[in-house]
Deep mutational scan, measured.
Amino acid sequence: MQAFVKTLTGKTITLEVEPSDTIENVKAKIQDKEGIPPDQQRLIFAGKQLEDGRTLSDYNIQKESTLHLVLR
């Protein structure tokens, strides 16, 4: 499924993900596309910070959801 990641600069990245993907996995995909190390990434969805060990389905993130990427 497709999900979108919006950065603070307003850029939107499109990712191909599965509901079973972990947040860690998603961060690795963002690193592949953008070169941002996962340890600098914080992903926010519905106002919550997403934890590495959880999956997209844990957070009820469905296709075409938009996550927000904040860098630390």
Rank of each mutant, 00 (worst) to 15 (best):
N25A: 14
D58I: 03
E64M: 10
Q49V: 15
F4A: 04
V70Y: 13
G53Q: 11
T66W: 08
G10L: 03
E18M: 15
S20W: 14
K63M: 11
I13C: 02
A3D: 02
T14S: 10
R42N: 12
L8E: 15
P37M: 07
V26K: 00
L43G: 00
D39V: 10
G10V: 02
G35R: 06
V17R: 00
L69K: 00
K6G: 03
D52P: 06
Q40K: 12
K48F: 11
D58Y: 15
F4E: 04
T14V: 15
T14H: 08
G53V: 06
K63C: 07
L67I: 12
I36H: 09
T12G: 03
E64V: 05
I13P: 00
K33P: 02
L50Y: 01
G53S: 12
E51K: 09
E18R: 14
N25S: 14
Y59S: 02
K33R: 10
R72S: 13
I36G: 02
P19F: 09
K6R: 10
Q41C: 06
S65Q: 08
S20F: 12
L56C: 02
D39R: 11
N25D: 12
T22H: 04
V5L: 05
D39T: 10
M1P: 02
R42Q: 13
A3P: 01
P19N: 06
I30Q: 00
Q40C: 11
K11Q: 09
T9P: 04
E16Y: 13
S65F: 13
E64Q: 10
G10H: 04
V17M: 04
I23N: 01
S57R: 12
Q41T: 04
I44E: 10
K29H: 04
P37D: 07
N25V: 14
I23Q: 01
L67W: 03
E34L: 15
E18K: 14
R54E: 05
L15V: 09
L56M: 05
V17Q: 00
H68W: 15
K6Q: 11
R72H: 13
G53N: 11
T14W: 08
A3F: 14
T7V: 08
V70T: 09
T55L: 08
K63P: 15
G35T: 03
G35V: 02
T66E: 10
V17S: 01
R54M: 13
T14M: 12
D21V: 03
T7I: 12
K63I: 07
S57V: 07
D32F: 12
N60H: 09
V17K: 00
A28I: 14
T22D: 03
G10Q: 04
K6Y: 08
P38C: 09
T14I: 14
N60P: 04
K29V: 04
M1S: 04
I23M: 03
I30W: 00
